[in-house]
């Protein structure tokens, strides 16, 4: 579950998850759905995702940068995302989707990068939430 956050020049999202792993999964999907149309993505192939960081914040930024590279560099459209393992400094998992087809997976916004601007990861009794801003 995620919602869009406002920024004068860019765009952000607030993602939620019951666990840290779920937070990372939801954040990945939030980023993908800002960048491309995902309705027509078939989860027929897998794409490995892994990132490291020196704390939780850099771990999330580096993870989302991996997801962004999958979309814009490897040109793989993700529909689902699963975190297999996560610690304070490492995360790995897979994205399910297919190679990007410009006709079926139309670009919505070209996301340039994932920023630390007002980045916030919060743990509460209900679970986890994260605010992330993207440069577009």
């Amino acid at each position: 579950m995620f919602e869009i956050l406002e920024h004068t020049a860019d765009i952000g999202f607030r993602a939620r998850g019951r666990t840290l792993a779920e937070l990372f999964e939801t954040s990945a999907l939030a980023l993908v759905s800002i960048a491309i149309e995902t309705d027509d993505v078939s989860p027929r192939a897998e794409y490995p995702l892994a990132a490291s960081g020196h704390d939780r914040e850099s771990l999330l930024v580096n993870w989302l940068s991996e997801v962004l590279y999958a979309i814009d560099g490897a040109r793989f459209a993700l529909r689902r995302c699963r975190v297999a393992e996560i610690s304070e400094t490492r995360v790995s998992g897979t994205g399910a989707g297919e190679p990007r087809d410009p006709a079926r997976h139309r670009a919505k916004l070209v996301v340039k990068g994932v920023t630390y601007h007002q980045l916030r990861i919060v743990e509460s009794p209900d679970g986890w939430s994260a605010d992330v801003f993207l440069d577009i």
């Binding site: 580096n62 590279y69 814009d72 340039k112 990068g113 630390y116 440069d135």
Partner: peptide, 17 residues
Amino acid sequence: RGLGHQVCTDYLAEMNG
């Protein structure tokens, strides 16, 4: 384009560390 975006991403991560 994506080339410059990725250069920034790469070095931002490196400098943060």
